[in-house]
Structure formats: structure tokens, C-alpha cells
């Protein structure tokens, strides 16, 4: 087994002269759930599709499960699972037909009926894929992504269109796959999804890596200043501090045990994220706008 499931150095891709992926470095360990985060057009799908072997790259080295995806063959493809951002195929087939069919294409596969249940399509197994709702159709893609019992699973915005319950169920499924040792590369726009699932997250904007780390500590989140707020004499009090533990202890001591309306807030992942992509991108994308407002 190679050291990392995904190894990327200096990955670049241009369309019509414009760099879309620009010198990206990534390492994803075996068994890791890795999230790729970034605004629309950041280059997430392009990156993922290069790793899946769908697109050529202009520069850089890429090893996915130890092989170059651009040259890898059938054996390699039986070890990966893909859920693409958009798919509208197989609309005339039923859920069961399409899942069963693809199962038989893999050297080793999960049980189709179990997988259909796992993605929550049990009662729709006999329906044609083209007649499913948007979120149900997406679940077929997830089923087809995991049917071959992949070692590495690519998920490009897998939960787009999922209702809240389906999303929570999907998260459970991902955790279970991860517990079974599956490596997962996930792109998403949902920050709660990143917090719920990812061991590590990379933020990219305009094809460049902005930051990479654990969701809990991203952008210095864990050590950034916290805002402590509480009520005193009917007024809302706020204090920014780098040491909230000590401050709260003092508050509790002063008030003799009960502090009304006490809360401690650290920057949310969303705060950090918006700050990261805000400073990176808009400085040079909207100069006209800036002039006008200035």
C-alpha cells in the first residue's frame, strides 16, 4: 500500500489560457475523510475530475491509489467510486435495474438491495430513475458510487437537493463507510457537512489552496479571540478575550454562581471561511465596484 491515497503536487489546468487549477498540492491519507471547500468556479470539480481520470491535466504530478489516473486501467477503476456533480443517465431504467447492473461490473461488490436501502430508496426500487425527485435521483448516484465497495470514494456535492433527514442519513452512511476504512474525498458548499464529516478540509479559491487543516482549528479558529456575553443589571454585556475560560471563571466567581445569559462564541467555520475567500478573491475581481463605493 502506498503512503497516501491521493498525492498531488503542482497540479495545474487551464481553459482557454485562464488557469482554473493553479499549482495545487494535496495529500489525502488512507482512511481519511477529506473535504474540498470553495466558492462556485473555484476549481473543485475540475480538480476532482482530474483525480478521477476524466480530465487531463496541464502540469503537476498526481497519484491516486498509487497510479496516475490518466493512465490507470480497469483494476484501478474497480477500486474507486465516483459520484459526479451532474448525471442524468439511465432515466429509463428502474433503481433496482441500474444498481444491480453496475454491481455485476465490479470484481467485488456490495449487495444491491442493501445499498438501495442504505441510500433510502427502498420503497422506490421499482421506480424509473427519470421519474425520481431531484434528491432521490442524487441518491441513485450515491448508490452507484458505493456499489463496487471502493477503497476511495469521490463525492462531488453529493447532498445537493437532499432534504434535512436524507442529509443526516447520508452523513451516517459516510461515517459508516469511513469506519470500514474507505477514504473519502468530498466537495460541498455546506459548512455543517464539513464539520460533521471531515477529518481535514482544504479551502480553494480560483484554483489555489487558501488553507488546509482540521475543521475545528481552520484559520486559527480554536485560538482566535472569543466573545463572551452575559447580562448584568438587565444590560447585555460583551467582552472579547483570548482566554475565555479564565474570564468566565472570574465572572462566575464575581456573581456568586449564576451568570444570566452567559454565552461564549468563537468564530464559526462559516466566519473563517467567508473571511478566507473574501480576502483572497474579491480584491481583484471587483475593482470597479470598489471604486464606486469608495
Amino acid at each position: 500500500m502506498t503512503e497516501t491515497a491521493v498525492h498531488v503536487r503542482g497540479l495545474s489546468k487551464r481553459y482557454g489560457g485562464t488557469p482554473v487549477v493553479d499549482g495545487l498540492d494535496l495529500d489525502i491519507a488512507h482512511g481519511e475523510v477529506f473535504a474540498l471547500l470553495g466558492p462556485n468556479g473555484a476549481g473543485k470539480t475540475t480538480t476532482v475530475e482530474i483525480l478521477e481520470g476524466y480530465r487531463d491535466r496541464d502540469a503537476g504530478t498526481v497519484a491516486v491509489l498509487g497510479e496516475d489516473p490518466g493512465k490507470a486501467g480497469r483494476d484501478w477503476r474497480s477500486r474507486i467510486g465516483i459520484v459526479s456533480q451532474t448525471a442524468t443517465d439511465a432515466s429509463e431504467l428502474t433503481v433496482r435495474e441500474v444498481v444491480t447492473h453496475f454491481a455485476a461490473n465490479y470484481p467485488r461488490h456490495r449487495d444491491p438491495e442493501t445499498v438501495i436501502e442504505q441510500v433510502g430508496l427502498g420503497e422506490h426500487a421499482k421506480k424509473r430513475v427519470g421519474r425520481l425527485s431531484g434528491g432521490q435521483r442524487r441518491r441513485v448516484d450515491v448508490a452507484l458510487g458505493i456499489i463496487g465497495d471502493p477503497e476511495l470514494l469521490f463525492l462531488d456535492e453529493p447532498t445537493t437537493g437532499f432534504d434535512p433527514e436524507a442529509r443526516v442519513k447520508f452523513w451516517q452512511l459516510i461515517r459508516q463507510l469511513s469506519a470500514e476504512g474507505t477514504t473519502i474525498l468530498l466537495t460541498t458548499h455546506y459548512l455543517d457537512e464539513v464539520e460533521a464529516l471531515a477529518n481535514r478540509v482544504a479551502v480553494i479559491a480560483r484554483g489555489r489552496l487558501k488553507t488546509i487543516g482540521e475543521p475545528e482549528t481552520l484559520g486559527g479558529r480554536a485560538t482566535a479571540g472569543a466573545v463572551v456575553s452575559w447580562r448584568e443589571d438587565g444590560r447585555l454585556m460583551e467582552r472579547e478575550t483570548t482566554n475565555p475560560d479564565q474570564f468566565v471563571a472570574e465572572l462566575v466567581g464575581k456573581s456568586g454562581g449564576h451568570v444570566p445569559g452567559l454565552s461564549v462564541q468563537r468564530p464559526s467555520l462559516e466566519d473563517v471561511y467567508l473571511q478566507l475567500i473574501g480576502t483572497s478573491e474579491d480584491l481583484d475581481t471587483t475593482p470597479e465596484l470598489r471604486k464606486e463605493t469608495a
Partner: peptide
């Protein structure tokens, strides 16, 4: 049609020869 609706893309992402 297969090229457009993702049938061929899906096949290329699976071990289907």
C-alpha cells in the same frame, strides 16, 4: 445522447470495459 447525459462518463468511471 449517451455522451450528453453522462452514460459514457459513468461507464468510464467504473470498471466496465
Amino acid at each position: 445522447q449517451d455522451r450528453e447525459d453522462g452514460t459514457l462518463k459513468r461507464l468510464r468511471g467504473t470498471p466496465t470495459p
